[in-house]
Nucleic acid binder design. Structure first.
Lengths: 185, 185
DNA sequence: ATTTAATATATCAAAATGATATATGATTGA
DNA sequence: TCAATCATATATCATTTTGATATATTAAAT
């Protein structure tokens, strides 16, 4: 079998705070979480059905006035599963940087292309960084209560690494430009 | 349809330098490349067959004395496809940090668990960093010729971000320990 | 000499992606 | 006002990828 479904843990984590629909979960994932994890409807809805079948969560249908929706509630078995996962020793940080792939294989094209791709990455990083800083500023105000410390640390991880990206971009651009002006070979 | 196969670009990139078997490709991917991209046999072999069918690569079977193996050679169509990809504007950097997921949802467990998970990440980062530094030191010697500049920049990206990880780890541990000694709530 | 490790190709179930289908309720602007 | 557009909501599907396993040969080690 393949690795066990990580999307389950994302959803159990979210459901440990409040009852949510599949659509709500998708919206939450598309927020801060999207900086370190992604999830699509194609994985969310089947996983919700599956987890309910296994007694990790429970659903109820609501429709007062508005259109019908299925709200999910976490069960004890789900909380245990979440805690077990947090206590597991092995983690897999699986990073797919298409930017680095293009940098690594950039030698088959002109140096300008590599330079341009770094600039694209730099712009994107700058945009993301400004969003992360807003998240951080808001979290700093409520640092004392509950889970906000965890959220704060997660966001600062993003900020620190994205700042490192920018420094690297500047350095890489300088090196590439130097070598284009004075080509050795 | 889903996004177009990125494994094709990894393999074309590798094949643009030398003829390789599927097994060779897997070994290459498990080297430096694995820091920013991964690939399994289950995606490599079917993609090789597919790319040959589409005229991007060509195979020949060798067996002189040793056991039979299928070597792949890049065709003009394959090189064009690789160059087209390098010139594409949109890139997707898809990062899955299970460590951050555990940090983000760590509030459901004791603070010690979060601290321990950060320490696990720190150790792993330290190990990886020492490997990357060896790669860098070797690349620095041959910086002038060909693609080595691209390889060098890729490796320094890893070093710079992993160093940022370590700084963050120290900071995060300090903050968590402070808050455990003087719990506000 | 025998076990273990490396080479080599292939397949499979499970998981995830990204797109699309379908339908309703809310908002907006011509 | 009423059509168009957007947000909500669930679901499915083909394609891609993962991680594991199966199978077999050759090389190295004990």
């Amino acid at each position: 079998m393949a690795k066990d479904r990580k999307i389950d843990m994302v959803m159990l984590g979210l459901l440990s705070h409040e009852d949510l629909t599949g659509y709500d979960i998708k919206k939450r994932i598309d927020g801060v979480i999207s900086f370190f994890w992604k999830g699509s409807f194609g994985s969310i809805y089947p996983a919700l059905n599956d987890m309910e079948k296994n007694g990790l969560i429970e659903s109820r249908t609501e429709s007062r006035g508005a259109r019908e929706k299925i709200l999910y509630h976490i069960m004890d078995k789900g909380t245990e599963s979440l805690k077990d996962w947090l206590r597991e020793e092995q983690v897999s940080n699986d990073l797919k940087y298409e930017t680095l792939l293009k940098l690594y294989f950039g030698g088959v094209e002109e140096r300008d292309i590599t330079l341009h791709n770094i600039e694209l990455f730099e712009e994107e990083t700058r945009r993301t960084l400004s969003v992360l800083r807003i998240y951080r500023d808001n979290l700093e105000k409520v640092l004392d209560d509950g889970d906000h410390l965890n959220y704060y640390l997660t966001v600062t991880f993003g900020i620190d690494t994205y700042e490192a990206y920018l420094k690297w971009c500047a350095k890489a651009k300088r090196i590439l430009e130097e070598r284009s002006e004075h080509p050795e070979k």
